[in-house]
Amino acid sequence: MRFLMYVVAALLPFLLKGYVSWLIGLALIYATISISWAILENEGRVSMGHSFVVGSSAYLSAITYLLFNSLAAGFLISIPLSAILFYILKRTTGKTAFVFATFTLSLLSYVIAPYIVIGERGGEEGFFILHDLPSLLFSSFSFVASAIVFESFLKSKLGYFARAIKSDELASRAVGIEVEKVKLTTSVISSAIGSFAGLSLALYFSHVSPEIFSLEVSVFPFISYVVTGGRKEYIAFTSIVLFLISSYLNALLTGAHLLLYAMLLIFSPKIGGWVYAKGQERLKV
């Protein structure tokens, strides 16, 4: 059922025309970012730095494209780069400090990005990628592929191990789960999906700018998750809807969607509490 919904969502931009088609194509990329984020959440890690995963992939692809005429090289470097960074952060921090650390990482990349200059290019303006690749096709394909990986991950051993680690890391080790291996693998999967999203974004706009590292990208998956009420299986769909709503709001009044994001962040504990209360209700039945 969900699988069908993924396919329908991915086909939508091809069925529609013009601006709406373009917008939904972009929404698919944001949904892919959320999927990458949700893989870490399944392990109990709330990342506030996914803009780093996305941005580094986009930037590195753009840079290797400029230097060596190869998009793939940068993209391929970015996967282990963010996987290793996130893995190190997981090793060295607990759940709360992980939020700080990833947030700081994304902030750091946001502040540094305008200083990345290669030859005469880069800086505030960023990099252009002149290509004639079918970018919409690429992003819908990445979306469906990520969604399938995500769904099978949730039902796999790895997904269950990750959930055990989320509940209690020491208890997981005490029953023989190889926690470090699981952490590393989830980091790689999450970062691979995030890097696909980054490359999609770069291709979609034929351009990357420092804005790709902005807070907006970092908080987007978390907000989608809050809106789903914690049911991460639906995060891709909520992300699409949320993205469309925020584009609409932004068109009405520039920046209005960020006010919405801010409100959702501010009331996220309340909404999280609602999820918890619901769990208890379910028990009574």
Partner: peptide, 13 residues
């Protein structure tokens, strides 16, 4: 294998 004195089951499962 060790079974904890205070059970440590996986809370969310």
């Amino acid at each position: 294998v060790y079974a904890f004195q205070i059970p440590r089951n996986f809370r969310e499962m």
